[in-house]
Simulated scan of single mutants.
Amino acid sequence: MTKGAIVKFRISDVDKVRLEHFADEAGKSVSAIIRCAINETMRGRVAGQQRREGIAKLRRSTNLMLEAFAGKPIDVPRLKEVAAQVRKDAARVLT
């Protein structure tokens, strides 16, 4: 990638350290992290929105599992179906 224009902006020293640490943990440059954030924002995606949606979906499937356990007698095929969905939703959130 060729170098482009430079944009300067101000952030607190604490936020700068946090950003540098985050970029380091992600194995990316600070510039790459900021470019990604800009692209996501311009697409209308709020930071963390996908994760929040994943967590909400996991919460709903977990509630379905609790409902399946509450039934007497327990509907084992339904419970297996719901457990598979919980596993799928959890994998999305945890990866």
Rank of each mutant, 00 (worst) to 15 (best):
residue 68 A to I: 03
residue 52 R to F: 09
residue 54 G to Y: 03
residue 1 M to S: 07
residue 91 A to Y: 04
residue 55 I to E: 08
residue 35 R to G: 04
residue 71 G to Q: 07
residue 80 K to M: 13
residue 34 I to Q: 04
residue 82 V to L: 02
residue 10 R to H: 13
residue 89 D to E: 11
residue 45 R to C: 07
residue 91 A to I: 05
residue 42 M to W: 05
residue 46 V to C: 04
residue 23 A to T: 00
residue 83 A to T: 14
residue 63 N to M: 09
residue 74 I to G: 01
residue 57 K to N: 10
residue 74 I to W: 00
residue 10 R to L: 14
residue 8 K to M: 06
residue 87 R to A: 12
residue 45 R to H: 11
residue 43 R to K: 11
residue 19 L to F: 10
residue 41 T to P: 01
residue 63 N to Q: 11
residue 35 R to F: 06
residue 33 I to C: 15
residue 80 K to E: 12
residue 47 A to M: 10
residue 25 E to F: 12
residue 56 A to R: 12
residue 17 V to N: 03
residue 9 F to A: 09
residue 22 F to V: 05
residue 66 L to Y: 01
residue 73 P to E: 09
residue 49 Q to T: 06
residue 68 A to D: 02
residue 53 E to C: 11
residue 7 V to T: 13
residue 82 V to R: 01
residue 37 A to N: 06
residue 75 D to Y: 01
residue 16 K to E: 12
residue 2 T to F: 05
residue 7 V to K: 15
residue 55 I to C: 08
residue 38 I to K: 10
residue 68 A to S: 10
residue 25 E to K: 15
residue 73 P to T: 06
residue 41 T to L: 02
residue 8 K to L: 09
residue 61 S to I: 01
residue 81 E to R: 14
residue 73 P to H: 12
residue 5 A to T: 02
residue 72 K to L: 08
residue 45 R to V: 06
residue 62 T to R: 09
residue 14 V to M: 05
residue 70 A to N: 09
residue 71 G to D: 10
residue 58 L to E: 03
residue 80 K to W: 06
residue 89 D to H: 04
residue 38 I to A: 13
residue 14 V to W: 01
residue 5 A to C: 01
residue 81 E to Y: 13
residue 10 R to A: 14
residue 93 V to G: 03
residue 52 R to Q: 13
residue 69 F to Q: 04
residue 75 D to N: 15
residue 93 V to S: 06
residue 69 F to N: 03
residue 69 F to A: 01
residue 93 V to E: 06
residue 86 V to W: 05
residue 60 R to M: 11
residue 62 T to F: 10
residue 73 P to D: 08
residue 4 G to D: 06
residue 4 G to Y: 00
residue 81 E to G: 14
residue 46 V to Y: 01
residue 87 R to H: 04
residue 62 T to A: 07
residue 74 I to A: 04
